[in-house]
């Protein structure tokens, strides 16, 4: 159940990040006089890509007691896997047509990747604070 919740939350966060990026790039393009072409299937393709990108998160759940070195490797694998999914989705859904477009997708991806991790770390920190407050209440005096 926890994993399903994690996948759902990650899907929503990634999809929201992608929609926000699309929204901002649309606005910038409009202000520069070039309107963005928005296809009917874009929202669904973003949601589907968001879901596919959430799946590699399960990599972090492979081993319960893992070392820091293993975790770093997982982050690197996660980063590459996600970019492969984004690049493939972009190719299938026509988000880019040339190398310039692929580079632009990569930059967008890095921004979203950092934003999603920052969001996740913020939630973790909030959770830690709650637990630490509760622990303080029962803590023994040494």
């Amino acid at each position: 159940m926890n994993r399903l919740k994690l996948i759902f939350v990650q899907t929503m966060m990634i999809s929201t990040g992608m929609l926000m990026t699309l929204g901002f790039s649309g606005l910038i393009n409009h202000l520069r006089g070039n309107d963005l072409k928005f296809e009917w299937y874009y929202p669904m393709s973003i949601l589907l890509t968001g879901f596919l990108c959430a799946l590699p998160t399960l990599l972090f759940y492979l081993k319960d007691d893992k070392e820091a070195q293993f975790e770093k490797k997982m982050i690197a694998v996660h980063f590459v896997l996600l970019y492969m999914i984004i690049a493939a989705s972009g190719r299938i859904f026509g988000w880019y047509s040339d190398i310039k477009g692929l580079v632009s997708v990569f930059i967008t991806y890095v921004i979203i990747y950092v934003a999603v991790w920052s969001g996740s770390l913020w939630f973790m920190k909030m959770d830690d604070n709650k637990i630490n407050e509760a622990l303080k209440e029962i803590q023994d005096k040494e």
Binding site: K66, E71, M74, L135, I138, Q139, D140, E142
Partner: peptide
């Protein structure tokens, strides 16, 4: 639990 000073979450869900 009464002897824990603080906890910190790690990426994989452990603490």
């Amino acid at each position: 639990l009464k002897k824990i000073k603080s906890v910190k979450s790690e990426l994989g869900g452990r603490m």
